[in-house]
Design a protein around this nucleic acid. Structure first.
Lengths: 143, 143
DNA sequence: GAGCTTATCGACACCGGGTGTCAGTACCGG
DNA sequence: CCGGTACTGACACCCGGTGTCGATAAGCTC
């Protein structure tokens, strides 16, 4: 979470001390960088195999899970209960998803954040966390 | 969805024409009326068996699914990917859930509805649907 | 660079929520 | 009361995801 110390590292590290940089992890990271919508673990695994990466499904599951836990990527559950992953910006935000083509737009909503906190406080709730997803049909899918 | 035609039916019917009133459906309906927080299908099944209702798990799954589809009850997915059901008020609303005891509070938020619509419109999305869940720790669980 | 330690990998078995099937059952209209 | 049909439920099955454990390879030390 904290900013990089002032050494010359370039982008987001994805490498945590005590965690090794492996070909598989790099491949998943690269793929996530190239994609801009939510993909299931199986999708990602399949795509990597298609690209000739020798990688196991278990590894994909675990790596995605670890990335999600580290806050590197966002997870969301589809209606079918399947988990989808996507690399997202650091800032807190929510998603606008097209139910037809799956296109995703990140949206910020200070209004919602405030509303959530206010409502929670009114009912005596603390340590608030919230999920907001908006699902609809995007312009190009409507035509 | 549409209001009842002007005959003398009392409360919410749960009975749709072409759908039969069975003991099992009634039992599920009754139980849902008595509960006021989200329960998994398996919970509900177990509770019904405990009460001596002879009812199959499959039936519970299907009935809950049908009720959810008809808008009679609300569904939400737990972090584990399990579906939870609860009978809710007719009006559109969201939930404030205690992550410790599971207590649920229904909250309304015109502000969020407007925000969602506005944001969606700005990005050319239509036929909007949205989910908002706030999770925290309630007052009694904090002490 | 060699050697060693240890995190990581991945094939495979397994788990558990949920669904499809299909014969038996029980509503409900006539 | 009877027949047709919606519903039921035991059971097999599906599939996303996790645990296991021997094999592998990253990275440190010398």
């Amino acid at each position: 979470m904290s900013a990089d110390p002032a050494d010359g590292t370039t982008a987001r590290p994805t490498v945590v001390p005590g965690q090794r940089a492996t070909r598989q992890r790099a491949a998943i990271g690269d793929l996530l960088d190239q994609l801009d919508d939510f993909r299931s673990a199986q999708d990602i695994h399949e795509e990597l195999r298609r690209r000739g990466e020798g990688i196991g499904l278990t590894t994909v599951y675990r790596t995605l899970q670890a990335l999600a836990e580290a806050g590197e990527i966002d997870v969301l559950r589809t209606a079918a209960g399947e988990a989808s992953y996507r690399r997202c910006s650091d800032t807190h935000h929510h998603h606008l998803v097209c139910r037809t083509c799956g296109r995703t737009v990140e949206v910020e909503g200070p209004a919602v954040e405030h509303w959530a906190e206010k409502v929670a406080a009114e009912h005596g709730f603390a340590e608030i966390d919230h999920t907001v997803e908006i699902i609809g049909v995007c312009e190009s899918c409507r035509s």
